[in-house]
């Protein structure tokens, strides 16, 4: 099958590649462009570990056709830190021990980032709702919720 050209911005850099028309965004990011931030967990849109931001909206990369991302802004956890300076959410996740095996962490951070961009002072219920599509099988939800609430109150948190 003929491949199609595809261009988008990934974490602030212009990227161009050729994709199979049936490729999803997850395979394109991981196998095509070498960004291993988003993970494969189920391929069915149920676990949330592949969550990325497409034009600021959280989307499940495993259910997103790669060609639908032409010209869009894609952001992943790999581009979240500003050089050596961690994003306040990353600092808060470290301070609150909000990762155990670490596999759900990139998706959790992305879901939290989308939440704080829209709602800088979320309630606990809003935090729970925002990460309800992200499964943590190590069941460390409480430290994750605490970390997101703490980041919301930290200086610089509004920088999405």
């Amino acid at each position: 099958m003929a491949k199609l050209p595809l261009q988008f911005r990934l974490n602030g850099s212009d990227r161009a590649t050729f994709v199979d028309p049936a490729s999803n965004l997850l395979d394109t990011l991981r196998r095509g462009l070498g960004d291993f931030g988003p993970k494969y967990g189920c391929g069915q849109g149920t676990c949330g570990v592949c969550t990325v931001l497409v034009d600021g909206e959280p989307q499940l990369a495993c259910l997103t056709l790669a060609v639908s991302c032409e010209g869009r802004q894609i952001e992943t956890t790999s581009g979240m830190a500003d050089g050596p300076n961690l994003h306040p959410l990353q600092d808060a996740f470290m301070d609150h021990f909000a990762a155990q095996c670490g596999f759900c962490t990139p998706g959790m951070l992305t879901a939290a980032r989308a939440l704080l961009a829209k709602n800088p002072q979320p309630s606990r219920e809003e935090v729970v709702e925002a990460i309800s599509g992200n499964i943590c099988r190590c069941t460390g939800y409480e430290p994750i919720i605490a970390a997101i609430l703490a980041a919301a109150n930290a200086p610089g948190a509004r920088r999405a």
């Binding site: 291993f36 931030g37 830190a81 470290m94 990762a99 670490g102 962490t105 951070l109």
Partner: peptide, 9 residues
């Protein structure tokens, strides 16, 4: 291993 987890490295 926490810095690697939060930076997806």
């Amino acid at each position: 291993d926490m810095p690697g987890h939060v930076t997806a490295r």
